[in-house]
């Protein structure tokens, strides 16, 4: 027996799940981006000043792509786990020989595929309007991957904890979306007055957005080393938490 078969089977199951629901999982964020481009690029955008030397629409595209990655990864993991808890198929999975770390990695992997697929499609659609390639491709990939890991892990934890569907929507609407918006999708924190600028520095999403923007446009507000290390460290910590929770069977094992 090839030892990786169980792991890749779970990845296949998870990818199969979101791929079958492509109209709900992949298309909506792409449509949203197109709307943003129409509104901010062609109608409103011309009235807003350039930021860091970029037209407004170009400035916000990296944030929109990151938002796609983040939402896609989070909802992939949390809805899959929540549903599996709901129909009890999670118990079937837990009774198989898969190790906790393999289960976590498989959920992350499928979240990664969905998130990075969405982010990439958004960039392809958006940048094809402006005909510029990403400035630092590997930096972009780095931030895409680590932000996807962070939010897949968060999704795993949220999915395990959730007792109702509502609580998941609450996290998305009242925690993630505000953090993302205030993390500088639509503005450079250079433009903020104190104390808001200071406050923004404590928003973890700020570093993720800033790094992603550097990968695409080549400009950044925070020291790059901060953003790089911060993103990777948070991802590792959350990964550890997820593996631990699966090991003890948190809210899954009686």
């Amino acid at each position: 027996m090839k030892p990786l078969i169980p792991f890749f089977t779970l990845v296949r199951q998870e990818v199969y799940r979101f791929w079958r629901l492509i109209k709900q999982t992949i298309f909506p964020p792409i449509v949203t981006t197109l709307l943003y481009i129409l509104i901010f690029g062609f109608s409103l955008g011309s009235r807003i000043q350039e930021i860091h030397g970029f037209p407004y629409i170009l400035f916000i595209i990296p944030g929109l792509a990151a938002m796609g990655v983040i939402n896609g990864s989070f909802s992939n993991a949390c809805s899959s786990l929540y549903m599996a808890k709901f129909d009890r198929s999670l118990e079937n999975l837990l009774a198989t020989p898969l190790r906790p770390v393999e289960m976590v990695l498989a959920y992350i992997f499928s979240g990664l595929m969905r998130g990075v697929l969405i982010g990439t499609l958004i960039l392809i659609v958006a940048l094809s309007f402006f005909k510029i390639p990403p400035q630092h491709f590997f930096v972009l990939l780095y931030f895409f991957i680590f932000q996807s890991v962070i939010f897949s892990c968060w999704g795993i934890i949220a999915g395990m904890r959730a007792k109702t569907w509502d609580s998941l929507a609450t996290i998305e609407n009242f925690i993630i979306t505000p953090l993302v918006y205030l993390g500088g999708v639509f503005y450079s924190i250079d433009l903020l007055p104190q104390p808001w600028r200071m406050v923004s520095m404590f928003n973890p999403l700020f570093y993720i957005m800033d790094g992603t923007r550097y990968g695409i446009l080549g400009v950044h507000d925070a020291p790059l080393l901060y953003s790089f290390s911060f993103t990777a460290i948070v991802a590792l910590i959350l990964f550890g938490v997820c593996v631990y929770l699966f090991q003890i069977g948190y809210r899954m094992v009686r």
Binding site: M1, K2, P3, I5, P6, F8, T9, L10, R12, Q13, Y16, R17, R20, N92, L93, T96, P97, L98
Partner: peptide, 16 residues
């Protein structure tokens, strides 16, 4: 929501 043929296929995979 998974077709049952897929469910069995995945289950086999979980056991290698």
């Amino acid at each position: 929501y998974t077709p049952i043929r897929k469910i069995l296929e995945f289950q086999g995979g979980f056991y290698g």
